[in-house]
Design a protein around this nucleic acid. Structure first.
Length: 423
RNA sequence: GGAGGAAUGGCAGAGUGGUCGAAUGCGGCGGUCUUGAAAACCGUUGUCCGCGCGAGUGGACCGGGGGUUCGAAUCCCUCUUCCUCCGCCA
């Protein structure tokens, strides 16, 4: 979330920039500022009464020690009055603080100045395109049919044992998954990212820290018995490692990578674009996360984009990089680049990575800070993350684009990992 | 799952109702000394929210939340986590 201080100091800018994000309640900004005014005044009054009470309590202690019991009791009577008064102020102060936070949490991150205006995908800006479009033979088929034909993916089995959107990979299909995961992790660690293997379930505090809670609750599987959430992305456990942490400026940047399965309910997305691996409830993803100094975060974002681009290039997939417009940008992001690869049989662009700079928005929720060597006060760090990469759609594109009448060619970089070059 | 014990500042560790944000040690930072370093000595060293032009100053925080009390690190309730033992188990 944005800090209250920032909102107070930049009211007009905040309102103006949030327009690009289609923020629907600009009046909330003024409500926040006036509620904060109230909060401050309540705090002044509360603190004053508390100071008085503290002073009297000390006096009582001293009087009792001296044995002046009567005098002590007299002072005690005075405290009763203050306590009653204080109770009201404390309650109101607490209410104001809580309401303020509830309102702050509803304000999305400000988009970066370069973010184009727009309401939907159609307004996203294509930054770069690359790779070569494949020429498929006449009888080319989409990946869900290839998966069945070559016994790589069994969608029906997944339905049987769990439900729709939980495919079973088998044989060379399973091995291809493992190869991609290992390949991505190797490339990421080679680029200086420390490999992590985090928990797949997180608590509420973690969900709040990265911005999934309280609003996007419906997107996550909730383990009600223990009040835990299955992660929709390893961004949550990895970034939350640094929750409530004050780093030294010299510790920055921190670069982590993690492979995890991801779980998404995808409520309300039935119908279009859900065939095969295009949209599933459980999938594998390798993520990269950076904790950055604010002055370096946009360079880091470019670096991450270049890194992810190289992965896609190495796999030989036609791709494009788009910058999300204001309306398509997520609640917490300031700037996001999406990677899409072309799946030639279904003739569709599939999103395989989303690389974002959250600036200090998550950091403020997380209380993730760093300190400059000579500075007393810690500053909020910047957080960034991106998929490197999400597997199912990569697999879909590889299967579809590399199919020949004789079988499917495995990208060369994967051969050491798969142990086979043809399916 | 059952029975006990514990949680204090960066770390270790005192503190069981009163001027305690908290002894002491270590670590960190600054200084003295030294050609330099070490040692020794001296000083300093948490976070957050306010008020004040400023020098300053008020409040909160001893795992989280609630309670008792004029006053809580200290007493009570509750949750979480860790340790020991028993049971179960990959």
């Amino acid at each position: 979330m944005l800090t209250i201080q920032f909102i107070r100091d930049n009211r007009d800018t905040v309102i103006e920039r949030l327009k690009i994000k289609n923020f629907k309640q600009p009046e909330l900004i003024d409500r926040i500022i006036s509620r904060d005014d109230e909060r401050r005044s309540l705090q002044v009054q509360t603190n004053g009464l508390q100071a008085e009470l503290n002073q009297l309590s000390k006096e009582i202690g001293i009087l009792f020690k001296k044995g002046e019991k009567d005098k002590a009791n007299e002072v005690k009577n005075r405290t009763t009055v203050i306590k009653n008064e204080l109770e009201t102020f404390e309650r109101e102060l607490q209410e104001a603080t809580e309401e303020l936070k509830e309102m702050l949490v509803q304000v999305p991150n400000l988009p970066h100045p370069s973010v184009p205006e727009g309401n939907s995908e159609a307004d996203n800006r294509i930054i770069r395109e690359g790779g070569i479009m494949p020429n498929l033979h006449e009888n080319a088929i989409p990946h869900w049919e290839l998966g069945t034909k070559y016994n790589l993916i069994d969608f029906d089995l997944g339905v049987k044992i769990t439900g729709g959107g939980f495919p079973v990979f088998r044989g060379k299909g399973a091995k291809l998954q493992r190869a991609l995961i290992t390949y991505f992790l190797d490339q990421n660690t080679g680029a200086g990212y420390e490999e992590l293997l985090p928990p797949l379930m997180v608590n509420e505090a973690s969900g709040f820290g990265t911005g999934q809670l309280p609003d996007k609750e419906g997107q996550m599987y909730h383990v009600t018995g223990d009040n835990l959430y299955l992660i929709p992305t390893s961004e949550i456990p990895v970034t939350n490692i640094y929750r409530d942490v004050i780093l030294k400026a010299a510790d920055l940047p921190i670069k982590n990578t993690a492979y995890t399965p991801c779980f998404r309910r995808e409520a309300g997305s039935y119908g279009k674009d859900v065939r095969g691996l295009n949209r599933v409830h459980q999938f594998d993803k390798v993520e990269i996360v950076q904790i950055q100094h604010p002055s370096a975060s946009y360079n880091a974002l470019e670096e991450m984009v270049n890194h992810v681009e190289q992965l896609v290039i190495n796999l030989g997939l036609p791709y494009r990089i788009v910058q999300l417009c204001g309306g398509d940008l997520s609640f917490t992001s300031a700037l996001t680049y999406d990677f899409e690869v072309y799946a030639a049989a279904q003739k569709k662009w599939l999103e395989v990575s989303s690389v974002s700079n959250f600036e200090s928005y998550q950091a403020n929720r997380l209380k993730l800070r760093y300190r400059e060597p000579e500075e007393k006060r810690p500053q909020l760090a910047h957080t960034l993350n991106g998929s490197a990469l999400a597997l199912p759609r990569i697999v879909a594109a590889i299967l579809e684009n590399n199919q020949t009448p004789e079988g499917i060619m495995v990208p060369e970089v994967l051969h050491p990992y798969t142990g086979f070059d043809f399916i």
